[in-house]
Design a protein around this nucleic acid. Sequence first.
RNA 1: GGGCCUGUAGCUCAGCCAGGUAGAGUAUCGGGCUUUUAACCCGAGGGUCCCGGGUCCGAAUCCCGGCAGGCCCGCCA
Length: 526
Amino acid sequence: MQIIGKGTWIDLVAYKVIEREKSLGRSLNLIRVESGLGASGIPHIGSLADAARAAAVKLALENLGYKSEFIAFSDDMDGLRKVPQGLPEWLSNYLAYPVSSIPDPFKCHESYGSHMSSMLIDAMEKCGIEFKFMSGRDAYRGGVYTKQAVKILENWEKIGQAIEEITGQTKFRNQLPYFPICENCHRIYLPKAISYDIKTQKVAYKCEGTEIRKKFIKGCGHEGETKVDSDQGKLAWKVEFAARWASLDIRYEAYGKDIADSVKVNDWVADNILGFPHPYHVRYEMFLDKSGKKISKSAGNVFTPQMWLRYGTPQSLLLLLYKRIVGTRTLSIEDIPNYMDEVDQIEEIYFSKKEPSSMWEIKLRGLYEYIHLLKPPEKPSKHIPYSLLVQLCAIAPEGKEIEYVANKLKQYGMIKEADEIIVQRIRLALNWAKEMHEVKREKIQLNEKEKQMIKELLNTLTNDPKESQQAIFQTAKKYEVEPKDFFKTLYKILLGTESGPRLGPYIVDIGLEKARAILMQAIESS
RNA sequence: GGGCCUGUAGCUCAGCCAGGUAGAGUAUCGGGCUUUUAACCCGAGGGUCCCGGGUCCGAAUCCCGGCAGGCCCGCCA
């Protein structure tokens, strides 16, 4: 069998793009791919998926021998339609304002939209994804779309009819597919675009108001005109992609099923009005939140790339996004440890000397290269199960967690020295242990005998790990209690678990005084 | 009304998009290591791959028809 590129779905998509371009007879000198960056809310994993996958297709195209470019396009002309959960209430005063003209609630960027795009860009950069950034506002201001916008507005009646045929939406039968920004109240969507003057290239509008998310927002009543080559208005989504594709010569763009209808219309417009064969598409399913447990607290149910990167490596995140594109992905923060371990598994396969024996192995090796953006490391790293790291971090004495865990790993013979990669892994696991690994520390009821035993133990514990371990055994024997049970009691007090590390060394690790204090308190409070 | 996804071990799921011996984690049971554990290592049991048809030398995988659950769109963008 002929294997395409690295054998993954990404390569298959790239191959299909190329084949399609060949059959269209278009130039293959530069194959441009695009992804939109939402700028109206906090970017979630799905937003990153769109961008990261487009970036991967670009790499696949290059790998197959073609020049390619990936454009990350910020939709910052969109109006704010809803104040996202967790953001300040005053933003509701800016409903229907273009996100690029709303102040940044976090006060670190020039606008709300720019802040949101930056969060996604930050995630992309952390993953090592390269891209060329473009802003919608800049594109309109610079007249990038003018030629296409003019064609669209000249044909608005034909397009309105097509929109009705394709989607059933009749709105654009009596309204231009263009949203001016009201020069009086500075809001978008509210002004209704009434007519287009071919000679002056101006759109006449009246700020009537519109329904956004089931609520009618009243316009200011202003009547005015907007020039299409300005940034004082934008094309409606139903036609804007088409203008963008034709203007920027985009050959591939994926889309989520939520905007499937818009894409259908845009394809029609590109093909039939603009004379630009629409880009090749892949439709993907949404990412669904599974639990939202911890997530909801901080940022209102949004699962952001930044959250993932708090506990997992960029490679684990890219693995999630690149593993497959078909099917709904339900995802939960709880999946991170699995993906961390899976990266190690495929790394092993990648570095295995054996010839790959199946398509399956070829795919996994390819996948490994993609999660490193086709620049895989030269040597494998040490593989330590994430759960082990978490376990160790959970019991590590506060303040010296990293040394403690690194030392344990050395004792276990898993590493010789803790290098940068190991330390970084420990940091991630430590975040997990502290924030996700909930330890239910029940209040412990100690009986008189147990109290007596612990009191006695307090006097025999020393700074020597072996002696302390011995002391626990001797105390148990003296009181004719199974050592196992006594250990259990001590674990509950010290760690909130029924089991844990060898106690003698652990007591020395956390400090004899501190251990004594915790045990004392347990006696007193029960 | 239109479109899409999912259904695989007790549980959570991978494998399906490029057909080639049914997989992992977890739970259960047994063994090893550890001066109690945990962790780790070895092993075992556990399957109508939702149902029915079709294509094929060969189907969990591709096609058609059901059943069940879920998601998206329906005059916002």
